[in-house]
Amino acid sequence: MLKLHNLSKVYRTDEVETVALDNVNIEIESGEFVAIMGPSGCGKSTLLNIVGMLDSSSSGDYVFMGENVAGYPESKLSNIRKQNIGFIFQSFNLIDELTVEENIELALLYHNIPANVRRERVAKVMDKVGIAHRAKHMPSQLSGGQQQRVAVARAVVGDQAMILADEPTGNLDSAHGQEVMEMLQALNAEGTTIVMVTHSPAHADYARRTINLFDGHVVTENLRAAV
């Protein structure tokens, strides 16, 4: 699916140079479920942002589906991103002014898909994540777990091959957290590649592989037997 080769990210200000990622080499196969762990400030989110093409690396290669995308212009990255990658955030990041349905549809809006096809796919994915009965509600009327389910639906409605989840359970209680993890696992079982940043070892256990980061380095990679 993707391969990072000697990838580094350095943040520069006038006085300080902060190395967020230092010669990282990671390979993620298609259909994998990978958890990225590590203490605060170790570079997890930076890594996820670069993988998600929201940010670019300072040096090194990023090969995504056989294509070296390092140095691609934003418009090209944006195109690859919207075709292939879905995002889930800790704070859900739904748009308050749009209904559940409209929030999910947003992901298809920028794909040139006709309205009736969009509605069909939105309905289908709402069924899948069990939020269909809340279709007309506003995000503020939902619980955190429900909101995150909407976010998951939005991430996969475009048939994205890969989902990047940045602490998807961070704002949820354990029951709702587990619910979301099971949903991700089910998606993975259907073939979606999932890369997830988490602080929770329990939730990391859902993944087949855990990458531990520390100060911008990959320290260990633990492969787990299938659960």
């Binding site: 998600g52 929201l54 418009s75 944006s78 195109n79 991103r81 919207k82 995002f87 990041n93 739904l94 748009i95 002014e97 947003l106 992901a107 809006l109 920028y110 794909h111 939005r154």
Partner: peptide, 16 residues
């Protein structure tokens, strides 16, 4: 800002 961020992530272009 946040809404714009979300839309960007979901693939909206600058002109859009």
């Amino acid at each position: 800002t946040r809404e714009i961020g979300i839309r960007r992530v979901l693939g909206a272009s600058v002109p859009q």
